[in-house]
């Protein structure tokens, strides 16, 4: 990102305006010190992880969880904490490698 030449004032859109959702291009995955691991075989697709994720990083397709967006996940661990599956959770946290 930082290698790209930034636009000058003539190239920027008029006013402090941005098209929606450009932060998708900004990767916060490298903020992680802990890493979530999803265990699909245990997942009951309750989506508690999805609705409690501050980083919109639980990927859901057709009402089912399909994975974690590691480009944006900051590794907070809320998903693992809120996972209701017992005795072993469907998302577990471990050290980021």
């Amino acid at each position: 990102m930082s290698q790209q030449k930034k636009p000058g004032w003539k190239e920027l859109a008029i006013g402090d305006i941005l098209p929606a959702g450009t932060a998708e291009k900004f990767e916060t995955g490298d903020w992680r010190s802990e890493r979530p691991t999803w265990h699909p075989e245990r997942c009951i697709h309750c989506l508690f992880c999805w609705v409690n994720c501050p980083d919109t990083s639980i990927i859901v397709e057709n009402g089912k969880m399909t994975g974690i967006d590691m480009k944006h996940c900051k590794g907070c661990g809320i998903c693992a904490k809120e996972c209701p599956v017992k005795p072993d959770k469907a998302i577990t946290m471990g050290p980021e490698r």
Binding site: K25, T28, D55, C76
Partner: peptide
């Protein structure tokens, strides 16, 4: 809201 914002982890 997309990911890629700069709130603290767990905010």
């Amino acid at each position: 809201l997309t990911g890629g914002h700069r709130m603290c982890p767990g905010c």
